[in-house]
């Protein structure tokens, strides 16, 4: 019972303050649509597997969006050393995602994330799947979960 009670406790995302690339502050829960599947991907410009994951998904993202009502939000955990690299990298790679900044890692800490990439799939605001790390093909597993849970 003790085990069960703990396993299911992290079920939604704490409503931390994040920033847009333009520097506007917002609450993360205001960005998550209640009627959609949302994928939250925690990444950083210096994290190679994170970039591999986001590159891989960007190639099949059109298909994901066509077949299910979903959106991916890429939450950068870069601190001010590398924050200025986010915008040119996103432009240069032509990523189709909404990009938000977790400037001093408030949300990352609240979710107890210690390594990135860490990816969450949310149905509405409820966390239904978590994966940490990336190896090629993980995007196919994510897509299966999205397909299974789409409305």
């Amino acid at each position: 019972m003790l085990f069960c009670s703990i396993v299911f406790s992290q079920k939604s995302v704490p409503n931390s303050t994040l920033f847009t690339l333009d520097g506007k502050s917002l609450k993360v829960l205001d960005e998550i649509s209640k009627n959609k599947i949302t994928v939250l991907s925690f990444w950083a410009t210096w994290c190679v597997p994170c970039i591999n994951e986001l590159d891989a998904i960007s190639e099949i993202y059109d298909e994901w969006q066509e077949t299910s009502n979903m959106e991916l939000i890429a939450i950068s955990t870069d601190d001010s050393r590398t924050q200025k690299r986010i915008r040119p990298m996103v432009n240069g790679k032509d990523w189709p995602y909404k990009i938000l900044l977790d400037k001093n890692q408030e949300l990352k800490r609240a979710l107890n994330i210690s390594t990135i990439p860490q990816t969450y799939i949310l149905k509405g605001t409820e966390i239904i799947y978590i994966h940490s790390g990336y190896s090629p093909g993980v995007e196919d597993e994510l897509f299966e979960v999205i397909q299974k849970n789409k409305n």
């Binding site: 019972m1 003790l2 009670s5 979710l111 107890n112």
Partner: peptide, 24 residues
Amino acid sequence: VLKLFFLTVFVQAQQNDNLTVGFE
């Protein structure tokens, strides 16, 4: 007692609250 405590927290958490534990 500890289990009961966690169970209470769990029942609470089932409604609209949130308990998270992180260990490293």
